[in-house]
Write a protein that binds this DNA or RNA. Structure first.
Lengths: 351, 351
DNA sequence: ATCCGGTGTCAAACGTTTTCGAAAATGTTT
DNA sequence: AAACATTTTCGAAAACGTTTGACACCGGAT
């Protein structure tokens, strides 16, 4: 009895005085009940009288109490937070983030994006991070890491555009094959016949698909595949320079080049300029990805746009379905790409 | 003795068989030591023989153990993670994220972006989120929420471009006054004399500063301030339409308009088109922010660019300094803006 | 007397880290 | 060689803040 009042008038102001976050114990003391009761009152569990609930909620209000996400996550394995693991906050992941965020806007899930501090020490940080967050803290994960390694977690995981890794993981990706097809067809429609290709990293799945799309388009048009028009650019701007140079200096150089990604395409445009070739007059270039730089550069790059926000939204939808225990018919979603014609493409110069 | 081997060969495969995350207890059992020893070995604490460390690390490797971020954060109040709270993953925050991420790349901090699921129920979700994460889980926070409310947390917090709220919080913002000055000066240099202004939300600090910048530029040029050229657009595209209409229909309409943000500017350009006015021929327009849409629209919008990535980087730097216990000389950082001339501005038509 | 909803408390988790002390190993002095 | 001091190595147990199932209490109805 006297204990209760002692708590109300004594302990509570004391706890408030010290600028420590109010814990559930402070609230309990202030309301003159046990911590268990506070927990139940706050979470609306059954078995607490409305009168007590009111007292507890008053104390919560007074002390500005918020349950610690960490502590509660620790005990009850549910947090209502879905995590998205990104290698880096570069443009690509930022776009996906927007898509995921928009898709989750209406849901009751909070979104937490996690990015390791850049120490991409070989492999495994994605596994490490996922492991450290899963089981606690997040109820589901979206991985935007190029290489999705094995992940024996108990939470649902969906991968976005994984370049390599577990094929059995639910996945959302853009249609690399179709995009390459579009790009190459477009060049053919413009009238090009000698079309070069700067390939990506051969170990990544997307690279193979883009290669295949390129060949398919040639086949459709009855243009024989000529290995001398293909170079490996490895997806990086620097690594693509040398192959681009070699390609454009070759005796019978192509009138157009399809690059497996925008970075390679940019390298080509630069190399062309250095060689005194005019783009698109002497050489047409098509990229893949539509990174922001593509539309900013001069001339603006014709490219294949990946629907990154839609990728994010689709992944979010898929993940939420999985988290609700549903088993979606489609666990591998492929989204169509779109050709964005800009200023680096034109019909070949009549010769 | 036999106990050790029993553990190694017995307990460990068992723990591995069940697809539960390996806990520190599993590792302890597998290595035949106590959990305390495992913790110390993993964290490189002093007082464990190298031989034991090796045994523990082997077990860790074998079981694929990763300490739970949540659990460790629970006990030792340090996590090595800094949190950035965003209202939404829209373009603005995404840019800032990139800046913060890049700045933190080299540091040892991991980055965690948290976004409540869109229930911006009046006020307070930023306080709630911050409170739920702080003290546990994150060691420092960057807030990208427009309204930064009081935050009695024990972790360092810095705000980015807060439109309103605590002035004593360490803050990084772009130079609204200077930007408005640049914009208006530019119009004056082009030869405009009747320059309209579509103001922002009067309750936000940035709006007041942009207004002040506009007036200062006029004053410098000896152009009298004319209240009939000012409308309040409230920063939103929809809310700016009506004021824009009223401004452009006024008897002696301005030859140029400076809008307090890009959304307002876009509204003006649209309204002008509807009224049959040619931009920039009949009307020059300058915006503020340089949102992505600004460069994509036709005609591309002349605007004041906020260095959003730099804002993020500066905030990260400031926060890290605070977290290291330093007391930086500058806790209020203002970054310069830059005029980006594009296609919506031209000298006034000679009349 | 027993049973019974309706309320509230106890205490055990959750997976770590850390303090403290015990035990063992080593060194030092008679 | 015994006794003692010192260091090294390790484990027991108490936190951290919350949730939850089992249980105790109590007034009233059987």
């Amino acid at each position: 009895m006297s204990n209760v009042f002692e708590n109300v008038f004594h302990v509570c102001p004391y706890a408030e005085a010290m600028n420590r976050r109010a814990t559930i114990h402070d609230v309990a003391a202030a309301a003159g009940v046990s911590v268990a009761t506070v927990s139940k009152a706050v979470n609306g569990r059954y078995g607490i009288s409305t009168e007590t609930v009111r007292r507890v909620l008053d104390a919560v209000q007074l002390l500005g109490y918020e349950s610690s996400l960490v502590a509660s996550s620790m005990r009850s394995r549910r947090t209502g937070v879905i995590g998205i693991l990104v290698a880096d906050f570069e443009p690509f992941s930022a776009e996906i983030l927007k898509g995921v965020g928009a898709a989750l806007r209406e849901s009751s899930y909070d979104l937490l994006a996690y990015s390791g501090s850049g120490q991409h020490d070989g492999n495994g940080w994605e596994r490490r991070s996922l492991s450290r967050l899963s089981g606690t803290l997040i109820d589901g994960a979206i991985m935007v890491t190029p290489t999705v390694v094995t992940a024996e977690t108990e939470i649902p995981v969906v991968a976005i555009d994984p370049h390599t890794g577990r094929a059995d993981l639910p996945t959302v990706e853009s249609d690399s094959f179709g995009g390459a097809l579009q790009a190459t067809r477009y060049l053919i429609e413009l009238g090009h016949r000698r079309i070069g290709f700067v390939a990506g990293r051969p170990d990544l799945r997307s690279a193979g698909l883009r290669d295949a799309g390129y060949r398919r388009a040639l086949g459709e048009a009855g243009i024989p595949f000529d290995p001398s028009l293909v170079r490996v650019g490895l997806y990086q701007r620097e690594t693509a320079r040398e192959p681009a140079l070699s390609l454009l200096r070759s005796p019978d150089r192509p009138t157009a080049v399809f690059a497996a990604n925008d970075l390679s395409a940019i390298a080509i445009v630069q190399v062309a300029a250095e060689l005194g070739l005019e783009v698109p007059g002497d050489l047409s270039v098509v990229g893949f990805d539509d990174i922001p730089e593509a539309s900013q550069m001069n001339p603006a790059l014709t490219t294949i746009r990946q629907p990154m926000q839609k990728l994010g939204a689709a992944a979010a939808g898929l993940l939420v379905a999985l988290m609700n225990g549903e088993t979606p018919a489609q666990t591998h979603i492929r989204l169509p790409t779109r050709l964005v014609p800009r200023a680096t493409t034109a019909p070949p110069r009549v010769s």
